[in-house]
Amino acid sequence: MTSSFESKPRPKGFLSAVVHHATEVQTPAAKIYVYEAPVRIWHWFNALCIVLLVITGYLIGKPLPSVEGEASELFVFGYIRLIHFAAGQILAIALLFRIGWAIIGNHHAHQLFLPPLWSAKWWREVWHEVRWYTFLERTPKKYVGHNPLAQLAMFFLFLLPLLNAVATGFALYAEGAGTDSMWYTLFGWVFTVYGDSMHVHTVHRLTMWVIVCFSLIHIYVAIREDIMSRQSLVSTMISGWRYFKDDRE
């Protein structure tokens, strides 16, 4: 960590994102500290929870073949559900923490939550990224944080579905806990939004597939960009530092 162009940016306020979003790099740099430790830890921890949730969630709707033996001695499906509920609640707490960090962390920390949908410049850059991914653009732009297209996808194909999974998940959990439980008081409204309990199950399951689809694209693009773009990606989410491979604009 010697030739850092810019030292660790001081945490900036929430509003700076509005003025200062998705910064395309104006000046060449060798490396910049982007993702602070809490963001990185959350990223990998969240990924682990999602893997557990997808596996157990899939099995909740399509259970494994029946097990033999005395029902009183077995708790196979019970454990699958238990892992799901535990991972779900941990994910939710981590998400709350992540939202907190978006407020107090550096200005990359709230990129996920605030795509500047009102900015024409930003949309032009989204378009540029679309052209880059459809091989119409030869050189990608450099970004310190997420590129605008990635930001767009993360917001609509990941953050919103994740929030939806948490809301519907807790609503289903509330049904098990009972209509007189605290959970039902907090999440009973979800049934009003989606109509009935069966629909909430269906929506929860469809949301899982949205998250799976996002993950496929996300993993592919991260690796591809790591190789083909002008900056580091995968290692950035591990170390926090963004490396740039050239010093052109």
Binding site: L64, V67, F75, V76
Partner: peptide, 17 residues
């Protein structure tokens, strides 16, 4: 489901296929 007498089989993972 909350008061179903087959619920122990559900938790055990024993289902009619």
């Amino acid at each position: 489901h909350d008061k179903c007498y087959r619920r122990p089989h559900f938790d055990a993972g024993q289902f009619a296929e």
